[in-house]
């Protein structure tokens, strides 16, 4: 196996980040502390951003950091606080459904892995792909995908206004 075929650094990087993400994700769904869960989620989201960089998607990675870690996480933390969750561990976060949830998750995972394995087998990603520039993305957003962008602005507007109406005290 030639060295150029195996990008050791990238593969190692992927593996480490992926492992952290999986652990983080598992903690998100198992931890007994809501604030911890939010922090673990930050780990996963940051890991995802790192993976995006590995996938030559820097703009998306930056967006991920800004939108998710910058905005969404703050929302989550506010949400946690406004609903007066205790900062410490809580007992009542889960219901009794683990015996349903676990088999479903495992079954779904098995199915998806089976299909992915069958589909792409050992297909490699191109190694010398250039980073997608922001211009390329913007060309698309303001070209072919202009109308969804227009619609997206309404989505955000509706979400913002609706959320305000629902959440405000009156």
């Amino acid at each position: 196996m030639l060295a150029s075929d195996v990008l050791v650094a990238q593969n190692v990087g992927f593996a480490i980040i992926a492992a952290i993400m999986v652990v983080g994700a598992l903690r998100v769904v198992t931890t007994k502390n809501v604030v911890h869960a939010a922090l673990w989620l930050v780990v996963v989201l940051a890991g995802a951003a790192a993976q995006y960089v590995l996938l030559a998607a820097e703009f998306v990675a930056i967006t991920q950091v800004m939108v998710y870690i910058g905005a969404v996480m703050v929302l989550f933390l506010f949400g946690t606080m406004l609903t007066r969750a205790r900062i410490g561990a809580e007992q009542d976060l889960n219901n009794k459904n683990w015996f349903i949830g676990l088999p479903i998750a495992v079954l779904l995972l098995a199915t998806m892995l089976m299909a992915l394995n069958d589909g792409f087998k050992a297909e490699k990603l191109p190694v010398d792909a250039p980073v997608v520039t922001t211009q390329q993305v913007s060309d698309q957003i303001f070209g072919a995908y202009l109308l969804p962008f227009w619609a997206l602005s309404f989505v955000l507007l509706a979400a913002a206004i609706g959320a305000i109406v629902l959440a405000r005290r009156d």
Partner: peptide
Amino acid sequence: NQYGALLFGAAAIGALVLV
């Protein structure tokens, strides 16, 4: 939660059969 379980469960089983 149970509704969600049904949704994902049905999706999992259907997907498994189809795959």
